[in-house]
């Protein structure tokens, strides 16, 4: 069952991504509606697949790379679907659905071995930590997608090039607002995720902070977003600078997520 739902999700995400990419080149109300429907369908299948898997393994599927990637992907799609309804930003889908799709493909390519939950993960603090971290990751992914769109739109405006893509990307101010909202939601989540993570670390290893690569890079990520948010609130960093920082933050986040293994888990 899990596998069936998962394949369905993969198929629907694939179609939705294709549709959203097509939206960049062709404006049609029908296409937009169907892109959104396909993605919503995929998201529902994804939720079912995740719930079913949790039932099977008796815990949230967040404990290895395969599960984490799938969950990351689900969070991105859910966040986008929410924003799409709130801000009517179809083109954002063209930038974030490919990311979600790639994560899901990567997840499906990884081999899943059934294994027992390591005792070290059997702590509520770990679950809080992992869930919140993924919520914040999704918010930052959207922020990065929006930042890319901002830079493209800004480029069109500065070079006075007003093509079809220019017409489709939402106004700069809307992009800026979405970006800010995402940071304002993502940053506190990340903060709490890091704190709960260090509490778990204390339980598991006897020390709140061990300076392993994962923790170090998490801190770097946190510092970048902290700087960005601070600059925005006090000096008014926005526009190009904020967009670039948001993209850098996302790259560092990906390094943290993919590259850095916890010395304590796997």
């Amino acid at each position: 069952m899990t596998h069936l739902f998962f394949s369905l999700t993969l198929g629907l995400y694939g179609c939705a991504t294709a549709a959203y990419l097509l939206c960049l080149f062709r404006s049609s109300a029908l296409l937009t509606t169907w892109a959104s429907r396909l993605l919503l369908g995929g998201c529902i299948a994804h939720v079912l697949s995740t719930v079913h898997l949790s039932n099977q393994i008796k815990h949230l599927p967040l404990t290895n790379m395969q599960e984490s990637l799938s969950f990351f992907s689900l969070m991105i799609v859910a966040a986008f679907l929410f924003l799409e309804r709130r801000y009517k930003v179809t083109t954002l889908g063209s930038f974030v659905t490919p990311v979600a799709l790639m994560m899901l493909i990567a997840s499906s390519a990884l081999h899943a071995e059934l294994r027992h939950l390591p005792p070290i993960l059997q702590s509520n603090w770990f679950w809080i930590h992992a869930l919140l971290a993924f919520f914040s990751y999704a918010a930052f992914t959207i922020a990065a997608g929006v930042a890319v769109m901002y830079l493209i739109q800004r480029h069109f405006l500065k070079t006075k090039h007003f093509g079809a893509l220019f017409q489709r990307i939402p106004p700069l101010e809307t992009l800026d607002e979405i970006s800010y909202r995402c940071l304002a939601v993502g940053f506190p989540l990340l903060t709490v995720a890091i704190i709960s993570g260090s509490i778990w670390s204390e339980q598991a290893m006897g020390s709140y902070w061990v300076w392993d690569p994962k923790q170090t890079w998490s801190l770097i990520t946190w510092l970048i977003y902290a700087a960005l948010l601070h600059g925005r609130l006090t000096i008014g960093w926005r526009g190009k600078r904020a967009a670039i920082m948001s993209i850098i933050g996302f790259v560092v986040l990906l390094i943290t997520f993919f590259g850095m293994k916890h010395s304590i888990t796997w």
Partner: peptide, 9 residues
């Protein structure tokens, strides 16, 4: 129209 593409609403 152009102003709307920058300033939004």
């Amino acid at each position: 129209e152009l102003a709307k593409k920058i300033l939004g609403d």
